[in-house]
Amino acid sequence: MSFIEYGDTIKEGDTAIVFLGHESMFPVKVQPGGKTQTKYGVIRHSTDLIGKKYGSKVTCSKGGWVYILYPTPELWTLNLRHRTQILYSTDISLITMMLELKPGSIVCESGTGSASLSHAIIRTIAPTGHLYTVEFHQQRAEKAIEEFEEHKVGHLVTVKTQDVCKNGFGVTNVADAVFLDIPSPWEAVGHAKLALKHEGGRICSFSPCIEQVQRTCLALEEHGFTEITTSEILLRVYNVRTISLQIPDLGKTADGNSSTGVDGGNLSNEDALCPNLPQETVQFKSGVPLKEMVGHTGYLTFATKNLF
């Protein structure tokens, strides 16, 4: 297992995702003799996991079953232990594309935080790229290093423990892209410019507050960055439901069994759930928005470093 290369069978030392059901999953480190408790009973690593194929159904001790999934950065983002607020895949997607990341890209990032974005970056720039990530919080930095090793991507990332606003990224003229997720990104813009390649590159800053964006844009402009744009991306998830709506009684039913005109309950629905209701209904499939959704994560400010 490695986050950058698919494998088929579960091996000792792998991080696997145990999928219990809708939106309910957790990561597990596969160890010989290891045991994992789920609500369906215990999973014994040696017999239930090691040697099995990813994506297969594993029966737990109480007879219930779970699926074991291959870890992707997206699944990791949903399952990692939060040390900080993290970036989710919706923002990560836009960041990755707008920073033009691809295999071979050299990227600078700060702070590392819980390494949610870091895993996605590493996935994208492997096998020839490199991530330089800076985290001034000693414990978080160490934890991130540990995870990278565990996920077998340590060779693609360098974690530095220093203050990016004071000391920069520790590299100059190497990066194709810089990402900032820190409280005062405008203080790091100069360092970002130094870290970027001489011939240019892309920068992104993530800030929850508009005042931070204002100051960052000013700093970017002062440092000669161009194509400065700010955007915000929102994810709308829909639940798929079969809805049935009653047809109101307009008091006309008396004369000749009405239903001829109204094509009620006949909308070519193979799984018509309620065939013979006393009152007529119309059924249809709908994508129903969730009652609540994430309305704001942060503003994403992008810019280009140009030679001129």
Partner: peptide, 9 residues
């Protein structure tokens, strides 16, 4: 099933 909205500033 999802959709994204993009707002530019």
């Amino acid at each position: 099933l999802s959709e994204t909205w993009l707002r530019n500033y």
